[in-house]
């Protein structure tokens, strides 16, 4: 990256330096919102979010934002955000923030309890709200879930949502017992979510089940 930056920097240094600050730095930042499903069918898988979060901590740079939230019976709430951080512009401070964030997430994953219902839509709306507030140029929502939404009778989520310019990545989408009987249920569930997310204006929809290939999370499809 430095090598690539060197020659343009040489050319631009003389021209752009006087106009420093004319580009919005936030537009270059990356914001990631990680939703961890804590419903009864998925709570045992929640621990698998740790390596992904660690990968994100190792990948995200100064100025980037990261938030971890849980998906429970009703997830459209600020209280469901377990940890959030915007990394300091100084790399040394950013490293300290990352350590603190790692510890915070570690405690959460150790004490996570299963919820009765699964409100993925609420989590997505909350995530979109958080990401839009950060003003980052690149916005990503990672969902650790089986993608089986299960709402109580009073919770209303049947309305169009907005995920404009957000990349949505479903990670570690586990198969339910019923999916094993009829795989069309699993595939159909993913297809429904794909359509819904893209209809909401999402930039991209991606499913990654192989946690060994975390680098594909941010790779363009």
């Amino acid at each position: 990256m430095i090598n690539r930056a060197f020659l343009p920097a040489m050319l631009i240094a003389g021209l752009v330096v006087p106009a420093a600050g004319c580009v919005d730095s936030r537009s270059q930042a990356h914001a990631v919102y990680v939703l961890v499903d804590t419903s009864g069918t998925y709570v045992s898988e929640a621990g698998k979010a740790r390596p992904v979060i660690n990968y994100l901590l190792g990948t995200l740079q100064s100025g980037d934002s990261l938030a971890i939230a849980r998906v429970k019976s009703r997830s459209f709430s600020e209280k469901d955000i377990v940890a959030r951080v915007t990394f300091d512009s100084r790399p040394s401070q950013a490293n300290a923030q990352k350590r603190a964030f790692r510890d915070q997430v570690g405690s959460f994953l150790q004490m996570v309890h299963g919820s009765a219902y699964t409100d993925i839509t609420g989590g997505l709306i909350q995530g979109a709200e958080f990401l839009n507030e950060t003003g980052a140029g690149k916005k990503t929502i990672l969902i650790f879930s089986d993608m089986e939404e299960d709402l109580d009778k009073v919770t209303v989520r049947e309305f169009p949502i907005s995920l404009k310019n957000i990349r949505v990545v479903a990670v570690n989408v586990t198969k339910l017992n019923a999916d094993n009987i009829d795989p069309r249920r699993y595939l159909g569930r993913l297809e429904v979510w794909r359509k819904r997310v893209l209809a909401a204006g999402a930039f991209e929809w991606k499913v990654i089940n192989d946690l060994e290939r975390l680098d594909t999370i941010f790779a363009k499809s």
């Binding site: 690539r4 343009p8 920097a9 600050g21 580009v23 730095s25 537009s27 512009s89």
Partner: peptide
């Protein structure tokens, strides 16, 4: 600061 950019790709 590491997060300040002068252009889209130039820090």
């Amino acid at each position: 600061g590491a997060g300040d950019y002068l252009t889209a790709s130039l820090r």
